[in-house]
Computed example of a mutant assay.
Amino acid sequence: MSDLSHSPSLMPGQLLARGVSRALRGHDFVSVEELVPTSGLRVDVMALGPKGEIWIIECKSSRADFQSDSKWQGYLEWCDRFFWAVDSNFPTELLPEETGLILADAYDAEIIRMGPETKLAPARRKVMVQKFARHAAVRAQAARDPGFVTAF
């Protein structure tokens, strides 16, 4: 995988998110970044699969970044599968074995370990798909008309 320094305007976690999103397209998933499933939580990447599957991927660029994350378990109730995305230098032994693992860089990623599947209840899935769609639409509109759309 490539060095993360090729895109200096993006933070390391954003570069990992970009590589993850690119790789997930190869699995027929679409993704959005920085989605808020509920007040107080903001996921790095939420991916929506071809059968409505919802995955959350948290990108960690360092040991300190991972150790300072005290909210990750709160994400589990908002997805069917949960993953960590880290680069090849990250000490993966720190990551809980009962979660998914993706090795990533700014350009690509590889699923190393699938997160266990815990299917969302239909009502929760409907809410999350709607949030995903609205988030994606606001981002698309902001890209077309950056001075008009306010933050989501």
Results as ranks from 00 to 15, higher is better:
139 R>I: 00
15 L>T: 09
127 V>R: 10
35 L>H: 02
22 R>M: 08
121 A>F: 10
105 D>F: 01
70 S>V: 13
107 Y>K: 07
87 D>A: 01
55 W>S: 05
37 P>C: 05
84 W>I: 11
21 S>F: 01
14 Q>M: 11
120 L>I: 02
86 V>W: 08
89 N>T: 04
151 A>T: 12
129 V>Y: 03
73 Q>I: 07
115 G>I: 09
119 K>S: 14
98 E>P: 00
75 Y>Q: 01
37 P>V: 01
42 R>D: 05
95 L>W: 04
32 V>G: 00
19 G>H: 06
50 P>Q: 11
102 I>S: 13
56 I>A: 09
69 D>I: 12
65 D>P: 05
2 S>E: 15
102 I>W: 06
3 D>Q: 13
132 F>A: 03
73 Q>P: 02
129 V>R: 12
8 P>A: 10
30 V>L: 14
142 A>M: 07
118 T>F: 10
52 G>W: 04
139 R>P: 00
36 V>A: 13
137 A>K: 02
56 I>D: 11
44 D>H: 03
122 P>M: 12
131 K>V: 02
111 I>C: 04
61 S>T: 02
133 A>I: 01
133 A>N: 11
55 W>G: 06
131 K>T: 11
67 Q>S: 08
7 S>A: 05
59 C>N: 14
8 P>G: 07
106 A>N: 14
110 E>L: 07
109 A>Y: 03
103 L>M: 15
51 K>E: 14
94 L>T: 09
123 A>I: 11
69 D>P: 11
83 F>N: 09
4 L>P: 15
86 V>H: 09
6 H>T: 12
8 P>D: 09
138 V>M: 12
118 T>S: 14
35 L>Y: 02
5 S>H: 12
148 F>D: 05
136 A>R: 07
57 I>E: 11
12 P>T: 14
134 R>P: 00
87 D>R: 03
139 R>K: 03
120 L>E: 02
26 G>E: 08
107 Y>V: 04
150 T>Y: 06
15 L>V: 10
105 D>Q: 05
110 E>Y: 00
138 V>C: 09
23 A>G: 15
54 I>H: 00
16 L>C: 11
2 S>H: 12
128 M>D: 01
8 P>W: 08
